[in-house]
Amino acid sequence: MLEPRNPQEGTDRPSLGRDAGQPINNAPLADREVPLPGAELGATPVAVHAWLDGEASEADARLADAKQVALWNRISEETSARRRMTTPAHVHANIMSALPAATPSLATSVSATAAPAAAATGMIAMSPVTAALAATGLLAAGFLLARLFG
């Protein structure tokens, strides 16, 4: 959805959804799931996207928009340089020295299947037994509180 044309900038400013009243430059990055001002979808010819995706030749892309091809060639020089970057030498040693002394153990319970995903997402993994014990404990605590105040 687009807001009415901004008379000061002369561009169509896309809506920011729940932060529509907030200036876009102050919006949290996570909230910017919409095109930026001036970034109208479709501004880049299909042939240029196809070339950048390796599905068409540069000559075809140049025929569509030579200026954009020149821009992307410059950007590609920079991204190619970044692709050659390697991890700083001290990082390996830092990681090895920060490893815990304990050897990681094999997981054998149901939690073993949940834990890798939990580790990846930062969530807490809990086995059914642990969950049952926690639930029992909470029920007992609730019962005691009810006895005390009820």
Binding site: A39, H49, L52, A70
Partner: peptide
């Protein structure tokens, strides 16, 4: 594609 469109909008005035 959306990322390219946004980057292009931000960079093309200076570099294109």
């Amino acid at each position: 594609h959306r990322a390219r469109e946004a980057l292009q909008a931000l960079l093309e005035e200076k570099y294109a």
